[in-house]
């Protein structure tokens, strides 16, 4: 019974997902046997250094991996159905109705030559078969909901006439207008002013409550993670290396990489002298073209042993819901 309940509770279940980019220099394995679960209504944070595969993970869920990338194998269960088995048309339905996405830079994410209204109503007209007028009214409602005053006027404006924060609000309105089960937010505040960042995050959380939307929050800002997420997955070179609830992560992170990330946050209480000696994880992310044999983190890890060089550590559960990929912790 409990087992069943948990299964129902699972919105996204990614199993052994492999994505590769076929580049001139060789094959870059962007995702290597990635496993990731998102529960209904929760906020899952996905953190990791630049290039570790966060965006690729989100685009794989959407089935929108750009050329020259390809999903090589794996399953992506969403609402109990494998998205990999869906054809183009079915997948368009999923994107229009059940999964939405917002991106880092709202300026480039909106079409410069179409009005806000045109872009907001398009999916409604195409997929919800709404009339132009009804769609406009719904669009106005959602703009109001994201805190845009005078939505009737905004609908007629072009993206360049709005500020960055406003554009991200429009993106959120657009994303939530279909009342999706999953909202993927790929660094939604990175491009915004610090003062606006908190507003946008609050707004997302409010609307999440309202529509019971699960959020996949991609970021490299551990501050954002601490503030908004329920659970966190830490990613390194195309694999999840640690996954747990947010409290445990900040209190007792296990993986050496996660600990490195934690130490690298400039702390508000630390004095200036400490700031100057801000910790950085030694070495660089391995190139995805020639990943080392064994654990991908071995070259930068202070716990490295023979075992780490010979085989890859499995994902093992250390305490309830706390999974780690490491031989030595």
């Amino acid at each position: 019974m409990k087992q069943d309940n948990q299964k129902d509770n699972l919105l996204v279940d990614i199993r052994d997902l492999n994505v590769a980019f076929f580049l001139r220099q060789g094959v870059a394995r962007a995702l290597a046997n990635l496993n990731l679960q998102i529960k209904r209504g929760e906020t899952l944070g996905l953190v990791g250094e630049s290039g570790c595969g966060k965006s690729v993970t989100s685009l794989a869920i959407m089935q929108l991996i750009p050329e020259p990338g390809k999903i090589m194998s794996g399953e992506i269960h969403f609402n109990g159905e494998d998205l990999m088995k869906k054809n183009r048309k079915q997948m368009r339905k999923v994107r229009a109705n059940s999964i939405s996405m917002i991106f880092q830079d709202p300026t480039s994410a909106l079409n410069p030559v179409l009005t806000i209204g045109d872009q907001l109503t398009d999916t409604m007209i195409v997929h919800q078969k709404m009339g132009r007028k009804a769609a406009r009214e719904k669009a106005e409602f959602h703009l109001n909901e994201v805190g845009i005053s005078n939505p009737g006027r905004q609908l007629k404006q072009y993206p360049h006439e709005l500020s960055g924060g406003m554009k991200q609000r429009v993106m959120i309105a657009m994303a939530l207008s279909s009342e999706p089960d999953l909202l993927i937010a790929d660094e939604p505040t990175t491009a915004l002013d610090v003062t606006i960042q908190a507003q946008i995050l609050d707004l997302m959380l409010d609307l999440q409550q309202k529509y019971n939307t699960a959020i996949l929050m991609i970021t490299h800002d551990l501050g954002v993670i601490a503030e908004v997420t329920d659970r966190v997955a830490v990613m390194y070179a195309g694999k999840i290396v640690e996954q747990t609830d947010v409290k445990t992560l900040f209190k007792e992170a296990l993986h050496p990489y996660t600990n490195g990330l934690m130490k690298a946050i400039p702390s508000a209480v630390a004095d200036l002298a400490d700031h100057e000696k801000l910790y950085t994880i030694p070495g660089n992310v391995p190139t995805l073209l020639e990943l080392p044999h064994g654990c991908y983190f071995q070259k930068r890890c202070h716990l490295v042993s023979e075992e780490c060089r010979s085989r890859h550590p499995e994902f093992t559960e250390r305490s309830a819901g706390h999974l780690v990929r490491c031989f030595h912790v």
């Binding site: 368009r92 994107r95 991106f103 994410a109 030559v113 398009d122 195409v126």
Partner: peptide, 26 residues
């Protein structure tokens, strides 16, 4: 390759619509 094309695709619009309404004018 522009971001707004990815947005349009992510919203479930058909390739035809993406090309003719979102890409061509730009």
């Amino acid at each position: 390759r522009d971001d707004y094309i990815r947005t349009a695709r992510a919203r479930g619009l058909s390739e035809k619509r993406v090309i003719f309404k979102y890409a061509l004018r730009n």
